[in-house]
Design a protein around this nucleic acid. Structure first.
Lengths: 210, 210
DNA sequence: ATAGAATTTGAACAATGGTTCAAATGTCGT
DNA sequence: ACGACATTTGAACCATTGTTCAAATTCTAT
C-alpha cells in the first residue's frame, strides 16, 4: 500500500503484459469459433490456464470483449491519423486508409472482428465503444469531405459513402483467409481501385443525377 | 393417415402460415436484440404464445434460424434472377440488384440479417445455407463478369469486386433505420452510384438511374 | 354432438456457461 | 530464509436457456 514506486510498477507491467496475452488469445478464439460460441473456458484453455484465473485480470466476459474492441478501434484511430498527416490528395489518403484498414483487421490484429459486435455489450461499455467507433467513422468522413471540397471526388453524400466503404472493409473479416491466394494488401489495393474509383470524377462530369 | 386430400391440405396450409408468422416474429426479435441474445422464450413472448409451442413447428432453435436464412436467401435469389432477365447492360443490371438487395434486407424482410450469421449453424444446416449463399454470390459475380466481357466494366477481379459490393450491401443492416432520413431505395441508389461507378471505365455518359 | 386430430399449455429436466472464492502456489525484496 | 504480495488453482454455485412431454384445450369433419 506504501511501496508503489518500482516494485508495483514492475508487477503492473507484468500484469499488463498478461492482459495483452489474454486479449490476443481471446481474439484468436473469437475468430475461430465465433464470438458467442466462445466461452470463458475456451479462452482459458487456449492459454493453458484455468477459468477462474481470467477473473483476476478482467471483471467479467464483457470487460474482456470491450477491451478487445477498444484495442482494435485504437489501431484504426492511429491509422486514420496517419492517413490524415500524409501530404497527398484525398484520393491517395483514402487509398492508404483502405489498405491499412483491411491489413489491420485481417493480418495485424486478427480477431479484432469483435469490433463488429457492439450489441454484445451492455449499457456499461456500449456508449464508450460507440463513441470510439463514431470518432473513427467521422475521421474517415472528413477525408471524403475534403476530397469533395478539393474537387477530387464527386459531390456525394459523405455519410453514405463512408458507410458503404466501411461496410465493404469490415465485411472482409467474414471471408478473408490467411492461406488464401491474396494478401490483405492485395485485396486492399483492389478495394481501393473500386471504391476510390467510384468516388473520383475520373475525366469530367458524371453522375450528377438527383 | 388416410384422409389427406382436402382436410390435411387445409391444416398444412394453416400450419405453414403459422410457421411464417413465427419466422417473421423471430426475425423481428433477432434484429432488435441481436441473434444470440434472443432466446426461445423471447420469440414466444413476441407471439404471445408459450415456449414449448414453438417446438410443435420447429425441431429446435437451429432449424428456426436455418429457415430464416433460407427465406432471406430465396428472396435474394429471386432478385438476382430478375436482374439477369432485364434487357439492359451489366451496369444497369448491377444497379438494379444493389438497390433491390438493400431494400430486401432492410424494408421488405427486415430481420433477415440472420443470414450473416452462418457460423451459428451446425454441420446439419451450414452446408445447405452456404450452398445457397454461394449460389447467390456466384450469380452476382456473373453479372460483373458479363460487364467486363462486354467492355462496360474495367478489367477487375470479379471475385474480389463481388465481395466488396456484397460487403457494403450486407453491412447496411447494421446501421439502417426505418425512421432514418433516407429510404432504402435512396441509399441503394447512392451505393449504386459509388459501386457501379467504381467498376465502370467512365468515358462519358453513365448513371441513367432507373 | 362426438370422435379424432391438431394445437396449446405448463411445468419440469438437463446442460451449458458465467461467476465466485478460499486455499495453494509462486515471486520478490529485505 | 522469511514475510508480503501477486498469481493460480480447483471446485463449486447459480442463473440462463434449449428442450421434452403428458395433459388440457381447440378445431374440424361427419
Amino acid at each position: 500500500m506504501v511501496q508503489m514506486s518500482s516494485e508495483n510498477a514492475k508487477q503492473t507491467l507484468h500484469a499488463a503484459g498478461r492482459k495483452r496475452e489474454i486479449l490476443a488469445a481471446a481474439s484468436r478464439v473469437f475468430r475461430r469459433k465465433g464470438l458467442h460460441a466462445t466461452g470463458m473456458r475456451d479462452i482459458a484453455t487456449e492459454l493453458g490456464m484455468h477459468v477462474g484465473n481470467l477473473y483476476y485480470y478482467f471483471r467479467n466476459k464483457e470487460e474482456l470483449l470491450a477491451f478487445c474492441q477498444e484495442d482494435a478501434l485504437a489501431g484504426l484511430r492511429a491509422l486514420v491519423e496517419a492517413a490524415r498527416t500524409l501530404d497527398v490528395g484525398a484520393d491517395q489518403r483514402l487509398r492508404y486508409l483502405i489498405i491499412g484498414h483491411i491489413e489491420l483487421l485481417n493480418e495485424i490484429m486478427p480477431g479484432s472482428l469483435a469490433h463488429l459486435e457492439v450489441e454484445a455489450l451492455s449499457e456499461t461499455w456500449q456508449p464508450k465503444i460507440i463513441k470510439l467507433r463514431d470518432d473513427y467513422e467521422y475521421a474517415v468522413r472528413r477525408i471524403i469531405v475534403e476530397g469533395v471540397e478539393t474537387g477530387v471526388f464527386r459531390k456525394v453524400d459523405p455519410g453514405t459513402a463512408t458507410l458503404a466503404i466501411l461496410g465493404a472493409l469490415n465485411w472482409t473479416v467474414k471471408w478473408f483467409r490467411k492461406d488464401g491466394e491474396k494478401t490483405a494488401a492485395e485485396i486492399g489495393s483492389e478495394f481501393a481501385d473500386l471504391l476510390v474509383g467510384g468516388l473520383t470524377l475520373s475525366s469530367e462530369s458524371e453522375c450528377q443525377v438527383h
